[in-house]
C-alpha cells in the first residue's frame, strides 16, 4: 500500500475521462508513486546515446536516464547544462522496452513541459543541470508524468514530496565517482526519520509540530512520515556510485534502489560494470554474490574520481535551501 500523505485532490495533473462504458483516471498519486514502486531494487543508468541505452537494458537496468552529457562531463564542460536533445530521447524511447527518464533544470517549467509532451516515463528535476529558478521548484502536481527529485536531508525530501515528487533520490555529489556524499546523506535522512518516529511513538504532538517547523513542511506530512518511519515515496541512492560494492553498501543502508551516473559509462569496462552493478544491487545481502560482481570489474578501469573537498562546484547544494 502506498501512503498518500500530502496528496492534493483534483490536481491539474490528474485527468479523468469517462464515456458511456467506463471511466478512467490518469496521473493519480497511486499511478505516479506506483510507477516508482516498479523500479524498486533496481538500477537506473545515465545514458547519452542509443548504444549506451541498449547496453544498460541488456545489463538488467530497470530504466535509463537520458542526458546530453554524463555528469562528470557536465562538470568538466562548465557553462550552462540544459535538458537533453529531444531527438536523442525519442530515439532511445523507440529502441528500449524499459522506462525512459530525462532531466530538466530545477524550476524550469517549460523544459518539464517539453519532456512531458515527449512522453518520457519520469522527469528528474535535477541539480546536475544548471538551476533555472533559485527560489522555486516545479509544482509537480500539475503533471500527469511523475517526477523524481534529489534531497540531502529529510526536510528537503519532504518539501519535494509536498510539491508532488513521486520519488526521491538522496543526493551524492554527481560526476565525482566518489560515493562518500551519497553515504553521508542517506545516513542523515535515516537518522532524521528515526528521530521523528521516536517523537511520534512518544505521543508528543508539540514536539512533532516543532519538527515540522524545522523541516519547513506541513504538519500532516511530517506526522504521516513519522508514523510509517520511512519516506512516503520510493527512495533511491544517487551520486558518485562507481562500483558494485558502492551499490551494495547503499542498498544495505535502506535505499530502495540505485541511480548510476558517470560511474558506468565513464569507466573503460562499461558493459561488464553495468551488469556487475545490477548483480550487486539485486543480491546485496549475499556476500559471495557481491564479491563475484566486484570481481567482474577492473579497478584500474574505474572512473578516476574527485575529492569532494577540492570541488569548486557542489551540485548537491543546488535547490537545497528552498
Amino acid at each position: 500500500m502506498i501512503p498518500l500523505s500530502g496528496d492534493i485532490p483534483n490536481s491539474k495533473g490528474e485527468i479523468k475521462e469517462a464515456n458511456e462504458m467506463t471511466s478512467i483516471s490518469r496521473g493519480t498519486s497511486t499511478l505516479k508513486r506506483g510507477f516508482a514502486h516498479m523500479l524498486k531494487n533496481g538500477v537506473v543508468m545515465d545514458v547519452t546515446t542509443v548504444e549506451q541505452a541498449l547496453i544498460a537494458e541488456e545489463a538488467g537496468a530497470v530504466s535509463v536516464m537520458v542526458l546530453d552529457k554524463l555528469p562528470s562531463d557536465v562538470r568538466k564542460a562548465g557553462g550552462v547544462a540544459r535538458t537533453a536533445s529531444i531527438r536523442i530521447i525519442q530515439e532511445i524511447m523507440d529502441n528500449v522496452t524499459i522506462p525512459v527518464m530525462a532531466k530538466c533544470r530545477i524550476g524550469h517549467v517549460y523544459e518539464a513541459n517539453v519532456l512531458a509532451e515527449t512522453n518520457v516515463d519520469m522527469i528528474d528535476e535535477s541539480e546536475v543541470l544548471t538551476p533555472a529558478d533559485e527560489y522555486h521548484h516545479i509544482w509537480k502536481w500539475d503533471y500527469t508524468t511523475p517526477f523524481v527529485n534529489g534531497a540531502r536531508s529529510l526536510g528537503e525530501a519532504l518539501r519535494r514530496v509536498e510539491e508532488g515528487a513521486a520519488m526521491i533520490r538522496t543526493k551524492g555529489e554527481p560526476g565525482t565517482g566518489n560515493v562518500a556524499e551519497a553515504i553521508t546523506h542517506i545516513k542523515k535522512v535515516n537518522d532524521e526519520l528515526r528521530s521523528i518516529k521516536s517523537i511520534y511513538d512518544s505521543g508528543d504532538k508539540q514536539d512533532l509540530v516543532k519538527m515540522a517547523r524545522e523541516l519547513k513542511v506541513s504538519y500532516s506530512l511530517v506526522e504521516e512520515t513519522a508514523k510509517i518511519g520511512r519516506l512516503p515515496v520510493v527512495n533511491f541512492a544517487a551520486g558518485g556510485i562507481a562500483t558494485p560494492a558502492d551499490a551494495a553498501y547503499l542498498m544495505s543502508l535502506g535505499c530502495d534502489g540505485i541511480f548510476v551516473g558517470s560511474g558506468i559509462f565513464k569507466a573503460e569496462d562499461a558493459k561488464e560494470r553495468a551488469r556487475a552493478v545490477v548483480l550487486a544491487t539485486t543480491f546485496w545481502e549475499e556476500p559471495d554474490k557481491v564479491k563475484e560482481a566486484q570481481k567482474m570489474i577492473d579497478e584500474r578501469q574505474s572512473i578516476l574520481g574527485l575529492d569532494v573537498k577540492d570541488l569548486e562546484l557542489k551540485m548537491q547544494e543546488r535547490g537545497g535551501t528552498v
Binding site: 467506463t22 471511466s23 478512467i24 483516471s25 490518469r26 496521473g27 493519480t28 497511486t30 499511478l31 506506483g34 510507477f35 524511447m93 522506462p99 512531458a116 512522453n119 518520457v120 516515463d121 519520469m122 500527469t144 508524468t145 511523475p146
Partner: peptide
C-alpha cells in the same frame, strides 16, 4: 502506452466471483 497513459479503471473478474475491482 507509456507512463503518462497509465490509468486506473474499474475491472470485473466475474469468473472468479469478483464483480468490481479497481485496476491499477
Amino acid at each position: 502506452g507509456r507512463q503518462k497513459d497509465s490509468f486506473e479503471a474499474e475491472i470485473s473478474l466475474e469468473p472468479i466471483g469478483i464483480s468490481s475491482f479497481n485496476g491499477v
